[in-house]
Design a protein around this nucleic acid. Structure first.
Lengths: 323, 323
DNA sequence: CTGAAAGCGCTTACAG
DNA sequence: CTGAAAGCGCTTACAG
């Protein structure tokens, strides 16, 4: 006789184990103050395993009023190998506490009533432009407390560290090489602000700002004018390592020696940074400490406690050769 | 009088609009064969908007037995700027059809009964190592049809295209520069297979295989022996552009001119590829066409139709200077 | 268009 | 440990 295919429920586990639905649930959820004998536990778990039972997350979430889902929001463009490593670390920590971290990587700002967006997440972690007011609205739609990870002060600190390093190595004229990507302008601004602060503190002239397009020929043209200024030893702070690659290529094309004539410093320490000629000096963020704090904060917040700001660890300079 | 905070339900919308719960649902879901007059529609939508109603996804999923959630599974390490662009395209297309694409990026293979993993997704799109049998088990736990995107034939085609280009430019001795990253070995193998096929087809000797570590000094050492072989004009097919960066740096350190002495070709066409000296010749995938096919397939599959393999478009060589 | 109702699968308080 | 039950919020078939 052929039984029609049907979702397996806790009733099936109860039947298969010869126990009650209540006991099945107690075993599977381990509520405090309910000690099911080991033998009974095993009967339940074996039966569940045997018939291939998987509890329904929607039903659970509906019943509980919340889920153990944590939703990360970011754009794929923001993912670099370092961030990837950090996110694995974060996810492993959350998984150990039975939270699942899933990601919304979209640029799609769907309507708030769009049900598919309503995941009943316990918490939203946003790695987005917190200065963009549209994001506040967007994040609200998920109907969960929001923890914004992006952090202005750490970005400014990176800019300051770049200038401090260049100044220590005798550069008196600072250029900030900005990205032309619209989606990172807010990051770029914060970093520039740090560069400006440090120039002022050290008594240097205000930095020149030059947007560097992401293609070789355009980067070359963009930098041509600035490179004729040789009033002082030039140091170029790049928005990030990608921009630094473009700057290094432009300098190479113009036969300008690095770091003798012009020093270049990047930001992020991507794995490819060591492969420029000369290898790229850059700024590295110490995220580990930050993530540990963040994790504590997440666990608190998903338990209903209010969120608090997490202070980032200071960035450090990785000296390689370009500055 | 202070009302206690409570989740808003469709009952609240019914009350606020002075209509019935059934009507609210009909307006919000637009079921076929139910034509609610425009005026009534507006009353419902305005009320929902006004009180800030957001339907409960878990309740909906529980009722419907399925969700409009599509779960993508990949590792952040696999994300490059090109993939990011493609995924935005895919997501926008799905969003237009009211599907939400979310991502599981973890390496955590949680237990199948872990409820948080049970999202009741309509479909799972996996960008993973399909040759790793553990993934099959892992993906099953999501309890949805699985569409594996990774595709052996396109990878082999990339390897063949690399060799064809090098051979056309007079290289008779082919080296395959492999990655040492454990997580891409299966990709690397497929690409090598394509390289071997094309060498055989063109009557070249079987390619030498050299693992290239991702640090400059180790890459240099690894390539030292191979570079002494000058029996034939050498062409190096790199597993991807990252490996190509390491190879180019090693050649530069050894004062070997590219492409005169040794030609180098990458794979993927990452944005930084143009910034090596000389700029990197590489293989580019035409994903757009593939994604359109994939989208059709997804829509079919989430409607219960069986999945079918999607043939990829052939890759093309971007000629820049290194080969 | 309304109103009353069933039922998706789950957890949990309750009486035994 | 069981058994019967309620209720999370939703959609939808039904009679009116």
């Amino acid at each position: 006789m052929v039984t029609p295919k049907r979702r397996l429920t806790s009733v099936d586990v109860a039947r298969a184990s010869g126990l009650s639905r209540a006991t099945v649930s107690y075993v599977l959820n381990n509520p405090p103050g309910r000690n099911v004998p080991l033998k009974t536990r095993e009967r339940v778990l074996n039966a569940a395993q045997k018939i291939g039972y998987r509890p329904s997350a929607p039903a659970r979430a509906l019943r509980a009023g919340y889920s153990r889902l944590i939703l990360g929001v970011l754009q794929f463009e923001r993912v670099d190998p370092n961030l990837a490593r950090d996110m694995h670390y974060l996810e492993a920590g959350l998984a150990a506490r039975k939270f699942t971290l899933i990601w919304h990587v979209g640029s799609q700002m769907a309507s708030p009533t769009h049900p598919a967006n309503n995941l009943a997440a316990a918490l939203v972690i946003a790695i987005v432009d917190e200065t963009d007011p549209r994001f506040a609205t967007f994040l609200q739609q998920f109907g969960a407390p929001v923890l914004t990870m992006a952090n202005e002060s750490i970005r400014e600190a990176a800019g300051r560290a770049q200038v401090a390093h260049l100044a220590q190595h005798g550069r008196r004229r600072i250029v900030f090489a900005a990205s032309d990507r619209p989606d990172v302008q807010f990051l770029s601004r914060a970093r520039l602000s740090g560069v400006q602060q440090e120039c002022a503190r050290l008594g240097l002239k205000a930095p020149l700002v030059q947007i560097v397009p992401p293609t070789r020929s355009h980067a070359r043209e963009a930098l041509a004018k600035i490179l004729t200024r040789r009033d002082h030893p030039l140091g170029i702070c790049c928005y990030n390592d990608e921009v630094a690659f473009a700057v290094m290529a432009a300098l190479s094309d113009a036969n300008i020696s690095v770091p003798d004539s012009v020093a270049v410093i990047g930001c992020d320490d991507i794995p490819l940074a060591q492969f420029t000629n000369p290898p790229l000096t850059t700024v590295s963020f110490n995220h580990r400490q930050f993530l540990d704090e963040l994790m504590k904060n997440i666990l608190k917040a998903s338990g209903g406690k209010p969120l608090q700001a997490v202070p980032p660890a200071p960035p450090s300079v990785i000296v390689r050769g370009s500055a």
